[in-house]
Design a protein around this nucleic acid. Structure first.
Lengths: 340, 340
DNA sequence: GTCTATAAAGAGATAGAC
DNA sequence: GTCTATCTCTTTATAGAC
């Protein structure tokens, strides 16, 4: 019966090739440019073949989202080593922003496009991390919500989410289930950091950690999102802005005065928190960044073709080398809307 | 020569009708569903006619953005009355978020879609506010950047932007030029609030107001953006999350402990800041919310039509009544990319 | 100014031969 | 499993009659 297994492997391999091609297209031309035809061309198969592996274009996109999200979470794991909880949270924040900046199209796809994609990413993480093995329906709907919430008492989160690992979330400090579950690990990191902060009185006892975590996340997301979308943001280097935000939320420990209003820093070890800024993103988002260029065929009819592309390069540091860079075609947005 | 004027009026009227129709479509079906055909159908003209008023679909979209942005800024003006600068900034934050929540599709279009749209909004404000008069090319590129920066010394901002009202920005505390320039007014509100804070020592003297303002803005944007895109955000009521964020940035004044770490609130008048949460958004985004439904013709071929639509209703208060609500078709995203 | 008609391109998805 | 061929539907934008 090794025959069946070989066939399974081959099927999986093609599935991966499809996803790889799709990822490359998204990274290079933007999500809007992703079409079944282009993927098919890229892997040198016919469009029809894609449908043997994915029911629709959407399913491919969602797989991409789940992958990207898992990658983001994996980024957090090593940060658990940082001793000071506030520093740990800052490092998480920096890693988050660094990821967004390093993988703009991926980030955009996951968090800025369609709620259903965001949902797919948040819900399909574990599935993606174990993927390439077989059909994993291990559903882990809740986790993401819990990560977002970053709190054990995240009851409300459990409502919107499924059973699965929501249990681990409500179990409180339960340690990460396994190393191949970045979701549980990331969740644990955030939870414990917040609780440590609270325990040591550096976070008001009355603070609702869920709410705090969400508002904090919103700040990080805002920084990334504006950076990707707003032509005039930021005016100063991205790290500077990020630094001010982190200080506002977690206090300042170096020289600079507090960012928040009337923020008198309490006792806090000074820790050489400085070189952490570079963020811990392992370069290598696209396993096959080389690939052939699908030729974005020029438009010949009327004028007014080609998107403007309004993006300054600023943002200094934080910007890792590889990864999604300037999309060739620039994102855009068009229907599908009512279409079949 | 009244004839020429009448013709001009008629032309302008049609232009407005086009924009109205476009706005309604965006609000109800999402930006992705906006097409020249639909607009034409809505106003009962042929598609070709639209091109006599706008060179392209993009031009219409950009006009929409500028309009929306002007509307957002107008929202800020009355808040200038608030005495306490911190409270004033909080009110601005609430108004900003309230706008985003009240006009999701508009907000999305301006700040979450394409950088060129964001740029168009930020750059075309004054034009929009004076619109419906004639061809206004009064260009005011800089202002938006300055608003984003929120600071007089926003030199860098002036670089990315055009001359125009950048002058008023650099002039420092120059009062708003006129009432019909929401941009200058909004800018002034932010500037003075920040400077007052700094002057009274409630903001560290070393603080770079530009950076502070951008980071603060990012938090607001993050809250709105996640709310519009992330299925599991927020877990708690939106105001609660917003409140925590505002406290982190501007300190807490009521009972609750500071949100930021080790944030010891300095002297601050208590002001009954409470009912301000409802935000000052004048209901009436869509001047003609009635309109005819362009019939979204059903798809008959295969299955898998219709988008999922993943949006909880939560978010409690803040949510004004009218305005863009649940889009019929739900946003989505598709090409244009290379298309002509 | 406005329309009809249509060009030119793209999309997702499927039937059915091999 | 895979491909060819095709269906159906979409879009923006223009030409040219009226």
């Amino acid at each position: 019966m090794g025959i069946v297994e070989r066939k399974n492997r081959q099927k999986q391999a093609l599935r991966e090739r499809i996803l790889d091609a799709a990822r490359r297209i998204v990274i290079r031309e933007g999500f809007a440019a992703l079409s079944m035809r282009k993927i098919a061309d890229a892997i040198e198969y016919s469009p029809a073949t894609l449908y043997l592996h994915f029911a629709s274009r959407d399913e491919i996109v969602q797989a991409l989202c789940a992958e990207g999200y898992a990658q983001l979470l994996a980024t957090f794991v090593p940060l658990a080593q940082i001793a000071d909880p506030a520093e740990r949270l800052k490092a998480l924040g920096r890693a988050y922003v660094a990821f967004g900046v390093a993988h703009p199209e991926t980030y955009r796809l996951i968090f800025m496009e369609d709620p259903s994609y965001t949902g797919a990413a948040l819900g399909g993480v574990a599935a993606a991390s174990v993927a390439a093995v077989a059909e994993v329906d291990t559903d882990t709907g809740a986790i993401a919500a819990a990560v977002a919430a970053g709190e054990a008492e995240a009851v409300a989160a459990a409502e919107t989410a499924v059973a699965g690992s929501a249990a681990s979330a409500k179990a409180g400090l339960a340690p990460p289930k396994s190393d191949d579950d970045p979701d549980a690990a990331a969740l644990h990191i955030m939870i414990s950091a917040l609780e440590e902060l609270k325990a040591t009185g550096r976070l008001a006892a009355s603070t609702d950690l869920t709410v705090w975590a969400e508002a904090f996340w919103a700040n990080l997301h805002g920084i990334v999102a504006l950076n990707l979308t707003c032509p005039v943001f930021p005016t100063a280097p991205l790290d500077t802005v990020l630094g001010v935000a982190l200080d506002a939320w977690l206090g300042t420990q170096d020289a600079g005065q507090p960012a928040g209003v009337a923020n008198t820093s309490a006792a806090r070890k000074k820790k050489s928190a400085k070189a952490q800024v570079e963020a811990h993103v392992e370069p290598g988002e696209s396993p096959a960044v080389a690939g052939g260029k699908p030729a974005a065929q020029a438009s010949q009819p009327s004028a007014s073709s080609g998107k403007k592309s309004t993006k300054r390069s600023g943002s200094s540091a934080i910007q890792p080398a590889d990864a999604d860079t300037q999309p060739v075609v620039k994102l855009a947005t068009r229907p599908k809307a009512t279409s079949a």
